[in-house]
Design a protein around this nucleic acid. Structure first.
Length: 462
RNA sequence: GUCCCGUUCGUCUAGUCAGGUUAGGACACAUGGAUUUCAUCCAUGCAACAGAGGUUCGAAUCCUUUACGGGACGCCA
């Protein structure tokens, strides 16, 4: 164990953003790498905007990604409570320290933190008004990613609102002190806040933590300018969950947004990430989300799954599409999916790709029909192979024997097997692409193949 | 407007700290190939140091500066 203590401090006001997940991940990785403690603290000081649903979604999202916390909601810890809404007494105690030190004053019902320095009034272009400002000494924000950032606060700020609720800057710093936080890893949007926070640490006479402000996640330029928002496509963790992405793949991709290994390895397990992660290697510039790359990584993870794990992961999508139910034969399901695994790059596309394995009601693709049915004499070809396949014994129904049957027929008719393959595939699956052909026939089984070919002939000739 | 942080292929990035690389990888894209087909696989290609000065034999790398991008400027977090 090390004495590193990091915290992930989200505010449950809406859906969980992918940038939020990255912040959680980097904190988690740093804690795990250093043998430190990962604290989950819920910053629910804004009663108006916090919801129980958002909290549950957040917790579920973290669990789905496999990010467990050492202290926080549901697990407790020695520095609780872990909801800011329950820490009122602690805030009062710390507020008193500032009051006793003469670092606060009341104005319009709110409590302000008083900066130290000469006061003057100046017209402020941004606020379009005269404002009281303070000539403070600059503070240094010690940031692992950006080095020492020097910044100066020049306006007092609210630490307790007129409704009595303490404000973000205040509770954030108090909790970091009270919870013994050693490293603060958060988004770059907090960098300007950090000088406020350092001022507060100084007022409490506490050494500020080490900061690491990570780059922003930016919008796809096609979608607009600025940082990625919750409304942007691909921005929400829930979305990946519901689209049946693999959590490990999402985690892997998110880790690569602003961080990379020196040897360009991109597919990294959670253990490899933990081992190789380093705050110093985090990128300074903003990163843009690329859905194609996300899909690619997801596909790599799908391909690497064992057959059993693949079937387990594929089930929800197939169940949702009503292609299978609990009575579906497991060995048939697994055999079918084994043929799909190397071919199909997402579980959301799996149902349309694999439908014909599980249902006779698949659709015939028009484009494929144009390619396959307009050349030669497709119906004659089907009749020919049907006769041959009917004579095959059930026990001989293997890819190898089926291939022999096709080859023999091809020789007799002085044609290539290519004359039969596409039409048969079309008759059996409604399309001209899919799993490897011969294994597909084997898995479908003699009965399905014969029945489908027969009914195809019947429908097309009547 | 002010302050802060940034800027290498279309995108994510390696290389920058300790100056010498045909500036590397991945995704995407294009072409070719494998294959019964393919949404798969393989190969090849395309493509970047934001600009300008300076230091140096030599600059993506160090310095200055301009431009551009991002963030913040709430009794939100």
């Amino acid at each position: 164990m090390s004495n590193v203590r990091v915290r992930f401090a989200p505010s449950p006001t809406g859906s969980t953003h992918i940038g939020t997940a990255r912040t959680a991940l980097y904190n988690w990785l740093y804690a795990r790498k250093t043998g430190g403690t990962f604290v989950l603290r819920i910053e629910d000081t804004d009663k108006e905007r916090n919801t129980e649903a958002a909290l549950q979604e957040l917790l579920n999202g973290l669990k789905w990604l496999g990010l467990d916390w050492d202290e926080g909601p549901e697990v407790g810890g020695n520095y609780g409570p872990y909801f800011q809404s329950q820490r009122g007494d602690i805030y009062k105690e710390y507020l008193k320290k500032l009051q006793d030190a003469g670092r606060t004053y009341e104005k319009e019902g709110a409590t302000f933190f008083k900066l130290e320095g000469e006061r003057y009034t100046e017209y402020d272009e941004y606020h379009k008004a005269d404002m009281e400002k303070v000539r403070t000494e600059p503070v240094v924000i010690n940031d692992i990613i950006r080095g020492k950032v020097t910044r100066r606060e020049e306006r007092d700020f609210v630490i307790v609102r007129s409704n009595g609720d303490p404000s973000f800057h205040f509770v954030n710093v108090v909790d970091d002190i009270a919870m013994g936080i050693t490293h603060v890893l958060r988004g770059e949007d907090h960098l300007p806040n950090s000088s406020k926070h350092v001022e507060l640490f100084k007022a409490f006479n506490v050494e500020p933590p080490i900061f690491a402000h990570m780059p922003m996640l930016l919008k796809d330029p096609k979608e607009g300018k600025g940082k990625m928002s919750k409304r942007d496509k691909g921005a929400l963790i829930e979305e990946y969950k519901s689209r049946n992405f693999l959590p490990g793949a999402v985690l892997n991709f998110v880790a690569l947004l602003g961080w990379s290994t020196k040897d360009n390895q991109e597919i990294l397990s959670i253990d490899e990430l933990t081992e190789r992660f380093d705050l110093k290697d985090i990128q300074k510039g903003g990163a843009r989300f690329d859905e194609k790359k996300m899909s690619h990584i997801n596909f790599e993870y799908m391909k690497a799954l064992s057959p059993d794990d693949y079937a387990t992961a594929a089930k929800p999508a197939l169940l949702a599409a009503n292609l299978i139910d609990e009575s579906t034969d497991t060995s048939y399901l697994n055999a079918s999916l084994a043929l799909c695994q190397p071919k199909i790059d997402s579980f959301e596309n799996l149902p349309s790709f694999a439908a014909f394995f599980f249902s006779d009601q698949f659709e015939f693709n028009e484009k494929a029909e144009g390619k396959v049915m307009k050349k030669g004499e497709p119906l004659v070809r089907i009749q020919e192979i049907l006769t041959v396949l009917q004579d095959l014994d059930e026990t001989d129904w293997t890819a190898e024997k089926i291939e022999t049957a096709f080859n023999t027929l091809a020789e007799q008719k002085e044609l290539k097997p290519f004359a039969w393959f596409p039409v048969v595939r079309f008759a059996l699956s409604g399309t001209n692409s899919g799993p490897d052909f011969l294994p597909m026939l084997e898995v479908l089984g003699k009965q399905r193949v014969i029945t489908r070919l027969e009914s195809f002939l019947k429908n097309r000739t009547s």
